[in-house]
């Protein structure tokens, strides 16, 4: 299999402080890869560096043969990377429809954009009921659905998801994970950052464990889920 995304020796700094040190990641086409780790381990930073939101100090990020270093976030998005950021970051003062339309910003054909919005609404029927509402008035679960739906409009080949279950009721989390499984089944490669490591490993093929800005472990999801050290640290002892 060929790597869809390859991260080599990635270093990122935040105002002089080392946030990521020598990160190596590989994501193959069709995989679901989980990034696990404690708060501050560098999971969100990794996703933001891949999307171009943070400057890369050294190292390479290669997506489908293109080097992403020094490309702007909008150019990276147009290459086919979708990013559902931490905290959802929907446009709260705009309507649900406008949020979805903005998801299709790079699509030239209005008709094509409308078709894709319909597809997204088929995945999230709740959003159809709220289509003319201001996005800020949606519940947390609906906002997360909108954030994912907005990213799907561009039909990304690679979808980066940052804590999609954060702050949501268990039933809603279950729905979201079912949707992710469905999106993956349609051919989208996924990188998933999750606090809910159990759910993430149940969905993922492989996982990386980050600690203090470095990769501490990488293995198949099944192996990580059974590893006593991982279980103790991220899955909670039972």
């Amino acid at each position: 299999m060929s790597a869809l995304l390859e991260v080599r020796a990635l270093d990122v700094r935040y105002g002089g402080i080392v946030a990521l040190r020598g990160i190596d990641l590989r994501v193959d086409e069709g995989e679901i890869v989980a990034l696990l780790g404690a708060n501050g381990a560098g999971k969100t930073t990794t996703l933001r560096a891949i999307s171009g939101l943070l400057p890369i100090r050294s190292g390479e990020v290669v997506f489908d043969g293109s080097n992403l270093r020094k490309r702007s976030p909008d150019a990276i998005a147009r290459l086919g990377i979708g990013h559902v950021p931490e905290g959802r970051r929907i446009f709260t003062r705009m309507t649900v429809r406008e949020n979805l339309e903005l998801g299709g910003f790079a699509i030239a054909s209005q008709r094509e954009a409308a078709t894709r919005i319909d597809d997204a609404l088929a995945i999230f029927p709740r959003l159809r009921e709220r289509i003319e509402q201001r996005a800020g008035t949606l519940s947390g679960g609906e906002q997360q659905m909108l954030a994912i739906g907005r990213a799907l409009i561009a039909r990304p080949r690679l979808l980066l998801l940052d804590e999609p279950s954060l702050g949501l009721a268990p039933l809603v989390v279950k729905q979201i994970f079912e949707v992710l499984r469905d999106i993956h089944a349609r051919g989208t490669t996924i990188v998933l950052v999750e606090q809910n490591a159990r759910a993430a490993l149940a969905l993922a093929d492989r996982g990386y464990v980050l600690r203090n800005g470095e990769i501490a472990r990488d293995d198949t999801a099944a192996a990580l889920a059974e590893d006593p050290a991982v279980v103790a640290a991220y899955l909670g002892g039972e």
Binding site: F91, T92, M94, G103
Partner: peptide
Amino acid sequence: RAVAQDRDAASLVG
């Protein structure tokens, strides 16, 4: 309007 509200999120949609 999108850039006015959230510059990062706007750049992520292209």
